[in-house]
Design a protein around this nucleic acid. Structure first.
Lengths: 130, 130
DNA sequence: TGAAAACCGACTAATATAGTCGGTTTTTAT
DNA sequence: ATAAAAACCGACTATATTAGTCGGTTTTCA
């Protein structure tokens, strides 16, 4: 249940790759990540570009270009990554339920959302490098 | 992200309806649940039949038939309900990853799964009736 | 100046979800 | 007995989401 999309799985793995190079002079290319991680290049490009829009990585164009973290790995959480890649970040959007008052179940989904967020917030990229 | 399916949302609401009648002599019909909760009848029938296969409810055919809980609401958890309705109950199935050893991210998804399960296990139907 | 990279948007394919339909079986009230 | 009301069942369709592709433009560096 509640499948994590490939997009998000790939995105996290890509972030870990990029994080490994934190501090290096030259950025890492999408091509190299896609080879290392066996992720389709074109798809990965799109994913990384969303991570950039969320200011988690910075891109540099041209030869010797690529991507690097925009801040230290300790300052990037799994929640940051997941939020960057998924649009509706709540498991259940209660506005869509239509029967707000009747929906006795909404507390369940709210609890799940909270526990999910607190788990994701507690994990940093830093902690994943070890 | 990680959307809860309508199937599961409907299923939980149906279980709450059925639980409200716990102790009554006559069971509650799918028709009546579908009207109360504004859930498509045919779809709901399928959902409830899965809840029955998971032994969460018992059906009685014929006139005056319907469904009732198969055990007290305190003995049924949100996890029981969700598991009955979703096939792959883990957010990420690591066997599908294909690069087990390389998958540095699997601990993240495992943590999510654990926190999710412990949240769902901690919620009983009983607690939702109040 | 040419190659290598990011960057961009539109498209397609595959899969999963949501919902429908037409029936059969069982039970009960009349 | 029988008719109605319900569960029960499997196959089907429609819609939405996810995953992946493609063709191009722009920027940078050697």
């Amino acid at each position: 249940m509640m499948k994590i999309s490939k997009k998000t799985q790939y995105g996290l793995r890509a972030m870990i790759c990029i994080a490994r190079e934190y501090g290096a002079k030259t950025p890492i290319t999408v091509k190299s990540i896609s080879e290392k991680e066996a992720i389709p290049f074109d798809f990965l490009e799109k994913i990384v570009s969303r991570l950039e829009k969320a200011s988690l990585v910075k891109g540099r164009k041209g030869v010797q270009g690529g991507y690097m973290l925009s801040r230290p790995p300790a300052k990037i959480s799994a929640k940051n990554i997941v939020s960057a890649l998924e649009e509706n970040d709540a498991p259940v959007n209660c506005r869509l339920c239509g029967r707000k008052s009747v929906c006795s179940s909404k507390n369940v989904w709210k609890k799940i959302e909270n526990s999910l967020n607190s788990t994701l917030n507690s994990i940093t990229l830093q902690s994943l490098l070890k």
